[in-house]
Simulated scan of single mutants.
Amino acid sequence: MVLDIWKRIKQRDIAPIYLLYGTEGFLINETKQLLLNHILDEEEMDFNFSAYDLEETPIELAIEDAETYPFLGERKVIFLHNPSFLTAEKSKEKVEHNLSRLESYLKEPAPYTVMVISAPYEKLDERKKITKELKRNTVIVEAKKLNEHELKNWIKERAKANGIEFESNALDLLLALVGTNMFMISSEVNKLALYASGEKKIDAKLVEKLVARSLEQNIFTLIEKVVQRKLDEALRIYFDLLKQNEEPIKILALLAGQFRLIYQVKELSRRGYGQQQMATYLKIHPFRVKLAAGQASKFTDEELASFMKLLAEADYQMKTGGMNKSLLIEMLLFRLKR
């Protein structure tokens, strides 16, 4: 698991070759940065760090570099980006790679070089010999979306590194407000740590005060206000979004998307799906399923069907009619109120 590998890197338990693959860009970037920070000093970076785009450079040139002794230091780091020869996707490569050269290197890597192969693909082609060799001879970092438990553990570790600690309800609120984007979470944790200064604990009140809400979260909260029949508060959120220059058509699309998700979660729950199964089926983060399930319990099937019809009508009017778009959503919110 990626968090365990990070701990080993911090303890300077460094492997000669890493294979990073997956679509969670934060985990890939963080792993790269951790390796650089724990292998090279700042003054060594110019001499002993290099990066190659394998869509532009043959793999054998990068391996020649890896086998060359470091200059003014004991170790060197080499990043290899975009190894599309590891996937079944159509290749964008402009060069031919001597993959047998890479296979030989995997079996006997240079002891003074740390090679990091960064493959930002959802899947690798397991049928290929080179993929099998890499999985056999490297430390694998699978950069996939963390589940809720893993995400909370990562936030706790991030907070600890910044000298702060989240109260349990503050951690839940942070995730509810920001969502599961790790870049955004990292930024908000850093901001909270700076603001807290001498304070050790971060409570829900401070999170509520400082953490920026994503557009998606504002839409989620807006729907919550509709559910609670607090139309004035729902409208206030909507008007705030307009002040932030959010386009009405985008707001409508997100409203429709959230109600569609609520409907899907309600239907899948009726069929006996668990939340993790729903997340896999819908291809979204389990935390989004958890939030949608909470809202789904507050609607009847008839209400959801009615709301979906109203949203479809509003979408049609917005794209074909001459009515003011912002007024159209305002009227929609009045009609959504139960």
Rank of each mutant, 00 (worst) to 15 (best):
K76H: 02
K319I: 10
E247H: 14
A314K: 04
P111F: 04
N98T: 09
K76Y: 03
A161V: 06
E302Q: 13
E224A: 05
V77N: 00
E56H: 05
D125M: 10
N218R: 15
I130S: 00
E44V: 06
F299I: 04
A293S: 14
P286Y: 10
A159M: 05
D125H: 04
S297L: 13
R136G: 03
A193T: 05
T87A: 07
E93Q: 11
V207G: 02
I117H: 00
E148N: 09
L336E: 12
L328G: 11
K107G: 13
D315Q: 13
D13Y: 01
I329Q: 08
L134W: 03
A314I: 07
Y18D: 02
S84V: 13
Q217P: 01
K7F: 02
L134G: 05
L310F: 04
N137I: 00
N37W: 05
F166T: 06
L19D: 07
S269A: 12
P16Q: 01
I59H: 02
Y281L: 15
W6C: 06
L192Q: 03
I223P: 05
I28T: 12
S187Y: 00
Y105D: 11
K128Y: 05
F220M: 09
G321V: 04
D125Q: 06
S297K: 15
E56T: 10
K90I: 08
E56G: 07
E67C: 08
E122I: 00
R158V: 00
N324G: 07
A196S: 15
L34C: 01
E42H: 12
R335S: 14
E74Y: 00
S118C: 15
L328S: 08
F259K: 04
F307N: 13
